[in-house]
């Protein structure tokens, strides 16, 4: 049972209000007619399944009805951050270790940072490229 910080409601809410909606940051080809059947199939059906850091889309179905993103560790079930649609994660598989050292997590004594919120913009600048 996750405790999830909705980046729109700005509150922790119980998992029962939410609903997972698959991998985040998928991009629908701008001109579907120009891609091959195989590329279209990849877009439709192929998904990452990492052990560790994963970016997922969730919807606050019984709340504000907004879709948002979660960076989650699939091995520990730890939610590292939640961030709004259109924003980029501040924690990724590539920088997770650095992030842990920076103490991004549990900034508020909870289970996750608020993600790419204004108060975290400094952290975003420090993200190694």
């Amino acid at each position: 049972m996750f405790h999830i910080f909705c980046p729109y409601c700005q509150e922790y809410r119980e998992e029962e209000e939410f609903h997972p909606s698959g991998q985040a940051h998928l991009v629908r080809p701008a001109d579907p007619a120009s891609v091959s059947d195989e590329e279209w199939g990849d877009y439709l059906f192929f998904r990452d399944n990492p052990r560790g850091i994963h970016h997922e889309m969730w919807v606050h179905r019984l709340g504000c009805r907004k879709f948002f993103n979660i960076t989650r560790d699939t091995a520990t079930y730890e939610i590292l951050e939640t961030y709004r649609m259109g924003e980029q994660p501040s924690i990724t598989a590539a920088n997770a270790e650095v992030r842990r050292e920076q103490g991004v997590q549990t900034a508020d004594g909870g289970w996750q940072t608020v993600g790419a919120q204004p108060e975290n913009s400094r952290l975003n600048e420090e993200t190694p490229s």
């Binding site: 609903h19 909606s21 629908r28 919807v59 179905r61 009805r65 907004k66 879709f67 649609m85 259109g86």
Partner: peptide
């Protein structure tokens, strides 16, 4: 939810 999904994620 389907309508919201497409509006919020693809065509905001």
């Amino acid at each position: 939810e389907w309508l919201e999904l497409w509006h919020q994620t693809e065509w905001p």
